[in-house]
Design a protein around this nucleic acid. Structure first.
Lengths: 123, 123
DNA sequence: CAGGATCCAGTGGGATACTG
DNA sequence: CAGTATCCCACTGGATCCTG
């Protein structure tokens, strides 16, 4: 058994650590955008489609489903006609959104400091 | 010119905003692991290969090159034999590593709270 | 409005082999 | 040691069409 107290031992640098799964869940640009997009409260599908520029319905649904399956998001289907479904973060999701928001903010704040790297020249 | 003061208008939620490129640069699990792995100072290739469990030489090189091109990492080739090359974060990279480290820490701290979504069964 | 189902081109990324 | 070069295929994700 485990001494409970301190512990953790969770090491995302270890290939076999289950925390890797958590990391892979959020290591894609749509999750990085969708999660923080929900931080202010429930948002409807269509609203997300508009907020998250460039995302397709397919990827939005897929991303939300994945997050829902992992308990980061809750889906509320009001069962009305026309349909109204909205998504909200769970507490767990909210804790994650803080970390991801910081990443988004970093991108916004520093993108202009990146080397024009990617083939600025050619073409 | 612009008042520079407050906002920067950079909006990662806009498909066309250049900050998207920054986001996509770091929205993958290897970058999420490699960048924080460099936060304590220069690290050699082989060392990274061992530290970042599961990464292949190919992906390590690819990730490092991408980061280098964008000015997040500096590569130092000592030109010796046998070869000795090490990588270090630039200041910009260091600022990013803080945000990414928080994400890694989140994964380590909360992975056991994720629903056993592994339900890949369906199919 | 929310979203499933398909099709399919593009790419991510592992395995393996070779080099200075 | 630190890469580069191939082969190769599973998956990513956009486009398009369909439904309750």
């Amino acid at each position: 058994m485990k001494p409970a107290a301190t512990q953790s031992a969770a090491d995302v640098y270890s290939e076999t650590c289950p925390s890797r799964r958590a990391l892979e869940l959020i290591a894609n640009k749509w999750a990085l955008l969708v999660v923080p997009a929900l931080r202010r409260g429930p948002v409807r599908n269509n609203e997300l489609l508009r907020q998250v520029g460039g995302i397709s319905q397919k990827m939005l649904t897929q991303t939300l489903r994945e997050l829902e399956l992992n308990g980061l998001v809750v889906r509320s289907d009001h069962g009305t006609v026309p349909p109204r479904v909205d998504y909200a973060l769970t507490e767990l999701g909210a804790s994650l959104s803080k970390a991801l928001l910081a990443v988004d903010r970093w991108a916004e704040a520093h993108h202009d400091q990146l080397r024009p790297a990617s083939r600025r020249t050619g073409r």
